[in-house]
Nucleic acid binder design. Structure first.
Lengths: 337, 337
DNA sequence: TTGTATGCGTTATCAT
DNA sequence: ATGATAACGCATACAA
């Protein structure tokens, strides 16, 4: 690979001048610029970003850490965030990590070691940060969970109010006449999934508010996947013949649940209503269209990008923790009874 | 951020010794090791990977470039590839790029500039490579398109035979009794999407083999998305009342098509059969389950990872270009008539 | 306008 | 076993 030295040697100029050409400095003569640029093209020269970053103290890229490989919802956020950052002239590197804490720790180390000038964390638990975030000195944003209580000076967060949104969903199902509402998703007992835990809490609260008993066996934990939703719905419907509605704590879970309902010889929404959470694209193309709680991906993304760009330029600003509004997106999967 | 110098200064040792501790060299006394490690922990030291890479000549990470933000199929490959690489102890960086050539060029430059020790390209067109790949000297693998004709010494490729697979799909629909088969997906005329072009070619060939006329207005181009499929199916069904089956050149297109069919007051498969391509997870959870051509994600991933790891260690090996077998995955979306 | 020299944080090659 | 130092590729302050 050609280096700046090669360019200097071949063009007959010094590395100083070459560097100036490379960095668009004004004080270099037209003739020199042209000659040097020709050599650069001829050699297919690519600057070594490692050297550049070393010299400049920090990596020019922004690191995006995304928790979980197949989380469609997070990926839609990823897409928007990345697009917005590119539009702002920033380059990005994405790191996917498995959902267990060890990996997250690894990712944080990696992020620290890459010396990015900023980073996003899509879908992390607070616990992961509490222990390992202090190493990081550049501005960061946590998405889909609030980091307010962590109180790091350089970590902002934007999230939907999971408790409130889940409660809203339950109320909606209640208003549609449902009294036996099953809830699938969220790891029972353990808090492995903070999101699942919060949503579950919202459900219990809402059920009590509606004067319903949050019966234990109306809850069934599930992985946040179609397969998980399929199995959980099947289990729930076998155990409780009286449920008329299922609230799936994520759309992917809901898709699995609908498939399970069909495979058990029932129909959605005629026999069992299903409600999702997130508002991913397929909600509007599935059969039936899925009624869901739509998180505002656009707002989450744009706010967080603005925030990071702001902190990049004015690091002295304090962190922001904001809750963005959600929205009930009506489809065809919930029936009034 | 603490550097190796700080550790040296505070621990009272030289940077040489600290570096030895950091890199697990044997020739350092137990006592020194312990004392230095304590300082490392105290300072939350993170090695600067930029400096490390600069010194070592190349980045330790493998760069994965993925073309298109919302390609579920490619993301499933991404997941498997990444998992396999991590299992092999390699770290990865992912770069998503928009589907236009300019971005691809940018990504290749970026990749060249990051000095990765190897890279994957998921879903690129040959044209992108022809012009810009020569800069890259480390081993690379192109997935889902064959790079045989490019003949770069350091670029292998693994792909499904798109022509053959699409032809197979058409033959299957024919065998099910369908004679008026619409094809949606693939950019008509321009070769923007190589994959779409190849699959379209397979369709035409198969139609002729079946003695059918590849009528022009049975083809409708579409973006590779649910939305694209929705619009294309609607357009096609309005234009041609006689089609009994639609072959969508990707599963996401098929999902949109099925939704369109319902919205037009028809049913799949009773009125219109739909066949997809790729074999993404949702095929098995949709309503109806989608009949599709399943690409072997597992094989594509494992072969390509093995290939890259091999070339990392034995760079003198020549490139490999392999076609992996596809499979008809029967669902419920195609009816025998 | 151009060239020279220094240093970024690290590893590795010498000495000691 | 440990310390000193050169080198990696680049940007930049300073000199010319």
């Amino acid at each position: 690979m050609a280096t700046i030295k090669d360019i200097a040697r071949i063009s007959g100029y010094s590395i100083g001048t070459v560097s100036r050409v490379l960095n668009q400095h004004p004080d270099v003569s037209e003739k020199s610029r042209e000659r040097i640029e020709k050599v650069i093209r001829d050699l297919n020269y690519e600057p070594n970003s490692n050297a550049k970053m070393l010299k400049q103290g920090s990596n020019s890229a922004i690191t995006l850490i995304i928790r979980g490989y197949h989380n469609i919802f997070l990926q839609s956020i990823l897409e928007e965030v990345q697009l917005a950052l590119h539009k702002a002239g920033e380059s990005t590197a994405v790191v996917f990590v498995d959902e267990n804490e060890n990996e997250v720790q690894t990712a944080l180390h990696l992020a620290a070691s890459m010396r990015p000038k900023g980073f996003f964390f899509l879908g992390g638990n607070l616990g992961d940060f509490r222990s390992y975030f202090s190493e990081i000195k550049v501005p960061g944003v946590l998405l889909t969970n609030s980091a307010r209580e962590l109180d790091f000076p350089n970590l902002s967060s934007y999230a939907t109010d999971d408790v409130e949104a889940a409660a809203y969903a339950i109320h909606y199902l209640y208003d549609c006449g449902h009294r036996k509402i099953g809830v699938i998703g969220g790891a029972a007992g353990n808090k492995e999934s903070q999101t699942g835990y919060l949503r579950t809490r919202g459900c219990s609260r809402a059920l009590r508010e509606c004067g319903l008993d949050p019966e234990e066996d109306l809850y069934l934990p599930s992985r946040f996947s179609m397969d998980g939703g399929y199995k959980a719905a099947k289990g729930l419907l076998e155990r409780r013949k009286d449920v008329t509605a299922i609230f799936a704590l994520a759309d992917t879970i809901a898709i699995g649940a609908i498939r399970a309902i069909r495979d058990m010889g029932m129909r959605c929404p005629e026999d069992i209503s299903v409600m999702g959470f997130d508002g991913i694209e397929i909600c509007q193309y599935g059969v039936p269209r899925l009624t869901t709680i739509r998180q505002d991906v656009g707002l989450l993304s744009s706010l967080s990008v603005s925030n990071l760009l702001l902190h990049l330029h004015y690091p002295q600003n304090g962190p922001t923790h904001e809750i963005v509004p959600f929205q009930l997106q009506k489809g065809e999967s919930v029936r009034h009874i």
